[in-house]
Design a protein around this nucleic acid. Structure first.
Length: 305
RNA sequence: AGGAGUGUAGUUCAAGGGCAGAAUAGCGGUCUCCAAAACCGUUGAUGGGGGUUCGAAUCCCUCCACUCCUG
């Protein structure tokens, strides 16, 4: 008989209880969790990125958690390739897999794929960053020459976007916009997306509370150990940067914690902007697990959802 | 309940008779290989009441709130 290949995606803003729900679903279905999170892939960042705790890790097996070094130039493209490879094995073993994550771009890459663009080139990027710092107009001119269409619509105040576009143009010899299809790839597995929808105020309360718990769990010591590596992209992360300011003496510990709370709230807001655009997501209020389970059971029976 | 001072946006502070402004928070949005990143946009205020004046956040009276001092 043909093997089933189902991916259940649990998404939602930070602090919404994705990890708990993912573990509950995976346990109920006798399967495993595949993380879809741009920061939980790193080792040494367990507390600040709210990786699953020991009990959760013991309850169900997790993949793509703490499996990369903070010094790696890890990108969304790496994630897509690695996750798809893994899924082949996991579908073979379990049929259904639960993906849990808060990184919208990563979830999109996993579910819908990215176009075949040249990979990020760290050396070239550093060179372009230096050029931008010295003369943004020069790079904007280059972009207007090599990709007029993208030049018109890109946010020209955003160095990351401009630099990425030029990077692709240079590496491929083709305009960036010409390489983008703006279509979803067809995956050879079924996808069900579930989102956790908290009232904003309640979510913010939970976020504040969770930051306090991270503090009690030893976030400061974890950040202290990572401080020497603060220049890595992995450490450009809410929960660490703010404490680095404290270590530098430019902020008090209390200020740093307040900033972690604020930046977590802002992050949650940006996540929601991303997820609310995705009309494939089935939203559930917290505490409605039974409704989620029945939706999932329908999905697994092959009902169109 | 004696004296003095201060009340401007959620907060910190401008404007001292002539269009109430900034920072920050908040809110909304963008997103195809750094995305927990990097950006873009935006709501919102003169404590209440009266008076002077062509015109009051600004001057006067009063009430209220807060702060300090004295007892």
């Amino acid at each position: 008989m043909a093997h089933t290949r189902n991916l259940i995606v649990v998404c939602g803003p930070t602090g919404s209880g994705k990890t708990d729900l993912g573990v509950a679903l995976a346990a109920r279905l006798g399967t495993v969790v595949l993380s879809a999170d741009s920061r939980q892939v790193y080792r040494g960042m367990a507390i600040g990125t709210a990786q699953p705790d020991a009990a959760q890790l013991a309850a169900v097996k997790h993949y793509m958690v703490a499996n990369h070094d903070i010094g790696e130039h890890y990108t969304c493209g790496h994630y897509e390739r690695e996750a798809l490879d893994l899924l082949e094995t996991l579908f073979e073993a379990y049929g259904t897999v639960v993906a849990v994550g808060g990184s919208g771009l990563y979830i999109n890459a996993l579910c819908h794929g990215m176009d075949k663009l040249p990979e990020a080139d760290h050396a070239l990027r550093q060179q372009l960053e230096a050029a931008w710092a010295q003369d943004p107009a020069g790079l904007l001119d280059e972009l207007r020459q090599s990709d007029p269409a993208y030049y018109e619509k890109v946010d020209r105040a955003n160095p990351q976007r401009v630099i990425r576009a030029i990077e692709v143009c240079r590496l491929s010899g083709t305009p960036y916009s010409a390489l983008r299809s703006h279509t979803y790839k067809k995956r050879d597995f079924n996808i069900l997306k579930i989102g956790i929808d908290f009232p904003r105020e309640e979510l913010y309360r939970r976020i504040d509370l969770r930051v306090e718990r991270m503090k009690e769990a030893g976030l400061e010591a974890e950040a202290r150990a990572l401080y020497p590596y603060r220049a890595y992209n992995a450490l450009r992360t809410v929960g660490y940067r703010e404490l680095f300011d404290y270590f530098d003496g430019t902020a008090t510990l209390g200020d740093a914690v307040d900033m972690i709370k604020r930046n977590s709230r802002r992050y949650a807001k940006r996540q929601m902007t991303w997820f609310t655009k995705d009309d494939a997501i089935h939203w559930f209020a917290p505490g409605r697990e039974e409704n989620i389970f029945s939706l999932v059971e329908g999905f697994l029976r092959g009902e169109h959802v």
